[in-house]
């Protein structure tokens, strides 16, 4: 479904991603991406969704090279993402923004998504004035509209407590398996990833270190040496 080939991204002289390959194809399974700070996790998502032009390499979607496609094209064709720093419309009510996007993308499941993200009681409030945790759910809800095939999520748990993060991940796992979405999650919280993701990729210093099931990753000696340490 999503295939990344030889992807490199430079920021000036800094190499944020170096020749990364990644193939995500399992529908209905969360695919976690973990790694220490500066490993290039967010950069990988940015390059995959078109927010940042890669210096080298290809992004393939359903076999097609989409490296040069616009963000809006990717979204209309089923590639969606949420943001680490919540990206919503602060002056619109929750209902207004969800309706606007749902209407544009021709999605009639708005009510399901509102229920799933537990937003029913906030619909008529201005999004800029609700609690941060709820804003994060609005952000994810915006990304879920339009029946995306691929969902890229950048630290959906950022700013949430450990309990909230775990609950959000449970939500996401349910949703992803129900809708048969290919989902990629960048996440700091390693335990949440191991608990909920079917596949895990580890990045380190812009390089691909390992990909496998949580059990395989926990045992991987390179991952332990570079990232997890002996405690894991």
């Amino acid at each position: 479904m999503l295939k990344i080939e030889g992807l490199s991204v430079n920021y000036g002289s800094l190499r944020a991603l170096a020749d990364v390959d990644l193939d995500v194809h399992d529908q209905g399974v969360l695919h976690g991406i973990i790694g220490p700070n500066g490993a290039g996790k967010s950069t990988l998502l940015d390059a995959a969704c078109g927010r940042r032009r890669p210096t080298a390499g290809l992004v393939r979607y359903r076999g097609e090279d989409i490296t040069k496609r616009s963000v809006a094209w990717r979204r209309r064709n089923g590639m969606s993402r949420s943001f680490q720093r919540t990206s919503i419309f602060p002056d619109l009510t929750v209902r207004e923004q969800l309706e606007l996007v749902a209407a544009h993308l021709g999605d009639d499941r708005l009510d399901d998504i509102i229920r799933l993200m537990d937003l029913g009681s906030y619909l008529d409030q201005q999004a800029g004035r609700i609690a941060y945790g709820v804003q994060r759910r609005v952000d994810v809800a915006l990304a879920l509209l339009g029946r995306p095939n691929i969902l890229l999520m950048d630290e959906p748990g950022a700013g949430l407590s450990a309990v909230e993060t775990l609950r959000l991940f449970e939500h996401l796992r349910e949703l992803v398996s129900e809708q048969k979405i290919v989902a990629v999650v960048v996440e700091h919280d390693v335990e949440a990833v191991f608990a909920c993701c079917g596949m895990v990729t580890v990045l380190d210093l812009g390089r691909h270190l390992a990909t496998g099931t949580p059990a395989e990753i926990r045992k991987d000696s390179r991952v332990i040496a570079a990232y997890l340490g002996s405690a894991a």
């Binding site: 809006a72 979204r75 209309r76 990206s87 419309f89 619109l92 993308l105 915006l142």
Partner: peptide, 18 residues
């Protein structure tokens, strides 16, 4: 509505397919 949403958050609008 589209214009006001673009004014508030242009990037999110592109990421919503607009």
């Amino acid at each position: 509505a589209t214009l006001r949403a673009v004014r508030q958050n242009e990037e999110r609008m592109r990421f919503s397919g607009f």
